[in-house]
C-alpha cells in the first residue's frame, strides 16, 4: 500500500547566496499512512510551516519531491494544482482565515461550490458538518460574530466538508486558550477516527502533542526524531 503522504529528500532553501541561505526544510523524507494523526513539533523557525506548505502544494521544493497518494505534485501547476488541492487537501490555519464577508455556512459551502456540488447536497453537508463541529444554530453568523474557538471549528468544517484524504493544520490551536485548544484537538481526533482521514498538524504545545499518534520532531529544517506511539 502506498503512503498517503510521501516526501523524498525534500528541501526548501530561501535565499541565493551561500552564506545567507536559510535551509527551512532540509532533506526530509517521511511516509504517512492513511488515517494517521501526526504532529510536527519543533521550536520556532525549525521549518514546520514550510514543510506543511510543501506537502500541501502551496510551495515548491528546491529539490526532492512530494507525492500524495502516488502523485508527484511538483508536476502540477495552475488550475490543475488548484483543483487537486480543492479535492484532496483540507487546510486549517493558525489564524482561522475564514472569508469575512461570508457566514459560517457560506464559508463551509464555498469549496463545494468550486467543486460544482449540487445545491441540495451542499445544504445537507453544511448542516452535517455544523453539527459535527458543534456549531448548530450558528451557521448564519459571520466570522466576526464568532469566538476564536468557534471560528476554528468553522475552519475545520470547511477543511473537511469536501472529504479530502489529507487535512493539514498549521498550529491550529495557537491562537486559542489551552482548554479550547484541547477541546478542538479532541474534535479533530474524533473526526480523524470516524472518517479515517489523514491529519498532519504542527504545534508548540506539549499538552497538544501528547494527543498525537505520531510525533515528528524538527530542528533547523531536519527531522530530529520520528516516534509512533
Amino acid at each position: 500500500m502506498t503512503a498517503v503522504i510521501s516526501t523524498n529528500e525534500v528541501c526548501r532553501y530561501f535565499g541565493d547566496e551561500e552564506e545567507t541561505m536559510v535551509k527551512a526544510v532540509d532533506r526530509v523524507s517521511i511516509e504517512i499512512e492513511r488515517g494517521e494523526f501526526t504532529a510536527i513539533v519543533g521550536p520556532s523557525g525549525s521549518g514546520k510551516t514550510t514543510l506543511l506548505h510543501l506537502i500541501g502544494g502551496l510551495d515548491n521544493p528546491t529539490s526532492g519531491s512530494v507525492e500524495l497518494s502516488g502523485t508527484n505534485i511538483a508536476e502540477m501547476s495552475g488550475a490543475i494544482l488548484s483543483d487537486f488541492r480543492r479535492d484532496h487537501i483540507g487546510f486549517i490555519f493558525q489564524s482561522y482565515n475564514l472569508i469575512p464577508v461570508f457566514s459560517a455556512e457560506e464559508n463551509i459551502e464555498y469549496i463545494m461550490l468550486l467543486q460544482g456540488v449540487e445545491a441540495s447536497e451542499r445544504k445537507r453537508r453544511v448542516a452535517e458538518m455544523l453539527e459535527q463541529v458543534g456549531l448548530e444554530g450558528l451557521g448564519s453568523r459571520r466570522p466576526n460574530k464568532l469566538s476564536g474557538g468557534q471560528q476554528q471549528r468553522v475552519a475545520i468544517a470547511r477543511a473537511m466538508v469536501s472529504h479530502p484524504e489529507i487535512i493539514l493544520a498549521d498550529e491550529p490551536t495557537a491562537n486559542l486558550d489551552s482548554k479550547t485548544g484541547i477541546a478542538l484537538l479532541d474534535l479533530m481526533k474524533e473526526l480523524n477516527e470516524k472518517h479515517n482521514m489523514t491529519f498532519v498538524f504542527s504545534t508548540h504545545d506539549d499538552k497538544i502533542m501528547t494527543r498525537a499518534g505520531r510525533l515528528i520532531h524538527m530542528m533547523d529544517g531536519e527531522i530530529e526524531s520520528d516516534e509512533v506511539k
Binding site: A79, N97, P100, I111, L114, R158, A159
Partner: peptide
Amino acid sequence: TREFGVLKAIGSRPTK
C-alpha cells in the same frame, strides 16, 4: 492579499 492567498490555498483557481 491574505484573503486571496487563503482562497487560492483552499483550491480556488487563479482565474477565479
